[in-house]
Design a protein around this nucleic acid. Structure first.
Lengths: 201, 201
DNA sequence: TATGGTTTTGGGCAATCGTCCAAGTCGATC
DNA sequence: GATCGACTTGGACGATTGCCCAAAACCATA
């Protein structure tokens, strides 16, 4: 069989994925065409539909790959932080490196948006986000010794992940937004004694 | 002069804006074409370029109008809440009504994304968001008697607004996400004694 | 060297796009 | 009724789109 020749196809497939991810970040999910991807990958226009059934298929594969790698690295390094309060500060510092026009952050937002209209992508992204939330919650419980009611760590993790998404969003509007100044409220949120015992509906 | 006839033009202009807003929410910023807007508004295709210089011009006008109205109403009603802790609970309840596939929330996210690539829209949206942030900060200072360091209320407001954006985003992924369960961490964040006195960089 | 499957090529197809424009309609003023 | 400007009409233009396909190129095997 032609086993080694399959390598050729695999590499061009990877080139297509890389080119697609870069173009999504640059021009937006719907600013990418098959011809643009093919040109950047240095292949003929028709090759896209040989490796991928459709353009959305290619875009989904490209963006979910990047997103999964990014979120796993972020939550992984967050889990190495000694305690939640220094953890959120480290997180803000990390997010400060995103200028808002950064390709990676743009790709994340593009994906969120496209997911609202593409069920396949939505399910994939939902799984990725839920995984991140679980990692953060586990880390909060472990390092923060959350003694509040069951679910407090999960709630704090959910708000934290949501806040990160929102801050990346707003960084896109104002790259000068000082994220390190927001450490106070976030610290208050993840502090283990920051939750009242009673209350709530 | 033909003063009264200008009314005819004004109403069709409004019809175009309304149709454009609805279509942005349904099909996405780049899923809207001039012909689609014209058809929904019940006018001829060419009429779009009579009232607006270009399609982006129309989309910018349509989305910023809706966004400004939405955020002003939200922050306005938030300002009526007696204190920050019940305020964030009311806010979560309000956000729970957005299913994530809701037209209004989709339009907001669409706008954020398009703003990353359209400087004109970005400046407009930045102004709207900053205004909301200021309103929330003022409300926090007034109702919460923030006694922390100067800027604490602004920081809490920024995180709160970012969290709201992020939650709307994630509601789009998982409409079943229980927002009311997240009240604890948010309450801890806006509580006036929730901030340490020292610390910080 | 012949063979057969994998991969690549480059153009073709129908559809849609944003924009434009000459002609027509409408309503108020004279 | 005539006149004039604001507004609307519907089609035309070139460009671009996703997708497709017959033919060529490539490469490991026989």
């Amino acid at each position: 069989m032609a086993e080694a020749s399959a390598d050729r196809g695999r590499t061009t497939r990877q080139r297509l994925l890389g080119a697609a991810a870069a173009l999504i970040a640059e021009a937006g999910w719907s600013g990418v065409s098959t011809r643009m991807v093919a040109e950047r990958a240095g292949v003929a226009p028709g090759v896209v539909h040989y490796h991928f059934a459709s353009l959305p298929d290619l875009l989904i594969a490209a963006s979910t790959g990047v997103a999964r790698a990014m979120l796993e690295e972020l939550t992984g390094r967050l889990g190495e932080q000694p305690d939640p309060e220094t953890g959120v500060e480290w997180l803000l510092g990390e997010l400060s490196r995103y200028t808002g026009t950064d390709p990676a952050s743009l790709l994340i937002v593009e994906m969120y948006l496209a997911a609202a209209r593409l069920p396949d992508l939505r399910d994939l992204l939902q799984e990725i986000v839920a995984d991140s939330r679980d990692r953060v919650a586990a880390w909060l419980r472990e390092r923060g010794s959350y003694s509040g009611r069951p679910g407090d760590a999960e709630a704090a993790a959910a708000v934290l992940v949501a806040a990160v998404d929102g801050l990346v969003l707003q960084r896109g509007l104002d790259p000068c937004l000082d994220l390190t100044a927001l450490a106070g409220p976030l610290r208050a949120m993840v502090r283990r004694d920051g939750h009242e015992e009673g209350g709530g509906t």
